[in-house]
Design a protein around this nucleic acid. Structure first.
Lengths: 249, 249
DNA sequence: GCTCGACGGTGTTCTAGAACACCGAGACGA
DNA sequence: TCGTCTCGGTGTTCTAGAACACCGTCGAGC
């Protein structure tokens, strides 16, 4: 029996264990939905008692990183990131809310004819082409969403000149073209992932996913960008709080 | 050594202890800022180990009812204010499709044991049953969504007496029980439809769909209903308008 | 008078083990 | 085909200690 509390300046053992598991999750050794090893097995593998290991899991559960299910096992929780953080908080500049590291990988930028929905939304004439900017959003290094932005050729000509790997699209619009987004309309649907999207996102084709389509308008009300975003269903949830006013006290 | 887990149907010992302390706080035996008895003393007074007592305190601390200070003692916390920045959203009613004829078909109402998510959300004790109300929403005669509402048995007992084919659930709650929903929390995910759900909705199993889970709370903050809604992805979209204030730079 | 170190009291971390409770799957029977 | 039952695997609750770590105080020394 040694009963060591905080030895020298180190963190308690169960904090260390939690941290070790945290990185396993972040690094992707443990992916969302995966089942962790048995508590007993984890305990012995960390050279620690069951009670101590459970304290570590307690921490992780409080952070919504895992979920324990009696009789079933311990699982890596699906990250539930507020939708706004992925899309809209760009304006606030603060993308690293909740501690996750959000990065963007630029996949392609090329001109091509728009599909019908895009053409309608941007009210383009026939034969007019659009600039397609494909980007992958990574949370802690793992693909979270695939975003394709469509811009009318006139605007696109300016945008391609900018370094989109360094500058957010909205900033390019504002700095280079003086365009400020004032309003947007968004439609979210539940779809099956197509093969190319699945490949980019690293999941199997046909997997259920959110598809968000958004048209953004400038101050004058003219459509500027059409965004189409895919987010696999196992990586994301939309959460919101509702308050009903006018209820008795 | 006896290692008793949940004896018969009772709550674990540490839950009971937490509850005992909770009432002491609520009743005013322990006032804000007051120092609780020593952990060791509390443990022996409850006839329990230190570890077990600490689990009880863990619960209370997570509820912000107490605060523990290393080397000083355990104190009753000052009543805390919820700093939630509430996005005020109008209560748009349940899925009011515009213009179309919306009907509701009552499928089943029966009592059954809740699954884990429901039990947690409604904070039910073990063995407690819930009333499950399954309804099919039809738009223009076609199935649009499958809704299962889960109510604690006590409330359910009253609800089953009402004619749910004629009266909306919310009205029953308000008229018969005086319960008014004041707040709700909703989580929307993209899932694959299960076989039973697909059958009711008249589409193929595995089809992508929205799943919305919502907990509604009464004015006092107690959970009243858990709603789980499935909507096939090809029949529905979430739309919203966004406005960017002061977006300039 | 002022500073600093020891001390008693309090929360914290950990061990080693035991007996539950819960879940899903497979075997069995109606 | 459907329900029921048992069973192995997994998380959960609890015991009885032991040794820390942190805090305020009080007394000794300067």
């Amino acid at each position: 029996m040694n009963g060591n509390g905080r030895v020298n300046g180190r963190l308690p053992r169960y904090h260390q264990i939690a941290e070790a598991l945290r990185t396993r999750i972040r690094e992707g050794t443990l992916r969302p939905g995966a089942r962790l090893d048995t508590q007993r097995r984890l305990a012995t593998s960390f050279g620690v008692t069951l009670m101590t290991l459970r304290q570590a899991l307690e921490l992780l559960e409080r952070e919504h990183l895992i979920s324990r299910r009696h009789g079933l096992g311990t699982f890596v929780a699906a990250p539930s990131i507020d939708y706004d953080i992925l899309q809209l908080r760009r304006f606030a500049g603060d993308l690293s809310a909740k501690g996750e590291h959000v990065a963007t990988r630029l996949l392609t930028t090329r001109f091509s004819p728009p599909d019908r929905r895009v053409g309608d939304a941007l009210s383009l004439g026939p034969g007019e082409r659009v600039l397609v900017v494909a980007r992958l959003r990574l949370v802690d290094g793992h693909p979270m969403s695939l975003q394709r932005s469509f811009l009318p050729a006139l605007i696109g000509d300016e945008v391609v000149r900018a370094d989109l790997t360094r500058t957010p699209l909205h900033q390019v619009l504002e700095r280079a073209l003086g365009i400020v987004i004032g309003r947007a309309h968004e439609t979210v649907s539940a779809v099956r992932l197509g093969r190319p999207e699945a490949r980019e996102l690293g999941c199997s084709a046909g997997a259920p996913a959110f598809e968000s389509e958004r048209v953004s308008f400038d101050a004058a009300g003219a459509p500027v960008v059409f965004d189409r975003v895919f987010i696999p269903g196992d990586r994301f949830r939309i959460t919101r709080d509702l308050r009903y006013e006018g209820a008795a006290s």
